[in-house]
Design a binder for these strands. Structure first.
Length: 341
DNA sequence: CGAACCCA
DNA sequence: TGGGTTCGG
């Protein structure tokens, strides 16, 4: 879900090769969630191994990582830690939405309405510990660094970008901007075809770059005001924001008022100031290492094919590409060291 | 979502 | 060759 500031944010389309030789911190939860919700059969059932364990995210991660690595992009995945206490309400709300969607999924299946079934199946997507652990395992086998955030992954990714350890944070949500990421990349995919939530319509989605400095300049605010703006329109910590206030009004308010939250704190159940403080100073850690290593081919074969019933032919194909991609990555790193780009 | 397949 | 369709697990 994330903070609802998308329509205010200036962006520029980029090509994947604009990221050549660059390190990118991916919000792991965001990526995994996307794979789990989209990689499904026609009736909405996710891909599963013979023991019924979900594998959609493994398929998505495996092939997308190869593609991005072939483009000389150095990926690191940042996993969520403990959510802040004031996220409870949103977590609860999401659970209710999922459970309701799950029921409608089964109802649609009984009626034989596949399209409807898939729609609700996607909405019923849930990410559990086992899925996260499998994702971490695959990434490690692929030689991709895994970073464990103390709290929100977006915050940790933003911190790494702000320190210059990675070029950008990658997520579909805009939260990392509020957390202070100087750059955010969205739609980092190869095919760039995405189904619109409602209809059976596909739109071209190209990778895009959002530069925090340009956002602030365009809106005429500083980061603190941007955070307040986000809180007025709604974040994961106060879903829905303030009733009756959309992006435009919110922008006007934060530019006009010295303390825009004051007036709305009264009508809000959650502590808006705590949310603001969290965005400005989130828990982050320096205890991580961005070290890219050789993929463990045997390990990947065992994990994907033996344990999770992936086709050996397909995975071996992938491994061949992966090996070459690692070389591309090394070359890309060298070129960036010697300042050729 | 992305790979593989298919047919013009 | 490439755009649409189906499969993958």
């Amino acid at each position: 879900m994330g903070v609802q500031i998308g329509e205010l944010v200036p962006r520029k389309e980029i090509e994947l090769n604009n990221l050549y030789g660059r390190k990118v911190a991916v919000d792991a939860f965001n990526a995994i969630y996307q794979f789990l919700s989209t990689i499904r059969q026609r009736d909405g059932t996710p891909l599963m191994d013979s023991k019924g364990r979900i594998t959609s995210h493994l398929s998505g991660l495996f092939y997308r990582n190869i593609n991005l690595m072939e483009n000389g992009i150095k990926l690191a995945y940042v996993f969520d830690g403990k959510p802040p206490a004031f996220k409870k309400r949103e977590i609860e709300k999401r659970r209710e939405v999922r459970e309701e969607a799950e029921e409608k999924w089964y109802e649609a299946l009984e009626k034989g309405d596949l399209e409807e079934a898939k729609k609700y199946a996607m909405r019923a997507t849930r990410v559990n510990e086992a899925l996260i652990n499998d994702a971490k395992k695959l990434l490690e086998l692929m030689g991709i660094p895994v970073v464990q955030a103390p709290s929100e992954g977006e915050a940790q990714a933003a911190y790494m970008a702000a320190r210059g350890e990675v070029y950008a944070s990658a997520s579909q949500d805009y939260d990392s901007l509020l957390f202070g990421a100087p750059r955010l990349v969205r739609n980092v995919t190869i095919t760039g075809r995405r189904k619109l939530p409602g209809k059976n319509v596909y739109v071209e989605v190209r990778p895009e770059l959002i530069v925090l400095e340009e956002v602030l300049k365009e809106l005429g605010v500083d980061r603190e005001k941007l955070v307040e703006l986000g809180i007025l329109v709604g974040t994961d910590y106060n879903p829905g924001g303030i009733k009756g206030i959309g992006p435009k009004k919110a922008l006007a308010i934060v530019k006009r008022e010295k303390d825009p939250l004051k007036k709305y704190q009264r009508e809000s159940e959650v502590d808006l100031y705590a949310i603001k403080e969290f965005f400005l100073n989130p828990p982050v850690t320096d205890e991580y290492e961005l070290r890219w290593s050789e993929p463990d081919e045997e390990g990947i074969l065992r994990f994907l094919c033996d344990e999770h019933d992936f086709s050996e032919e397909r995975v071996k194909n992938g491994l061949e590409r992966l090996k070459k991609a690692v070389k591309v990555g090394k070359q890309a790193t060298l070129e960036s060291w010697f300042g050729r780009r």
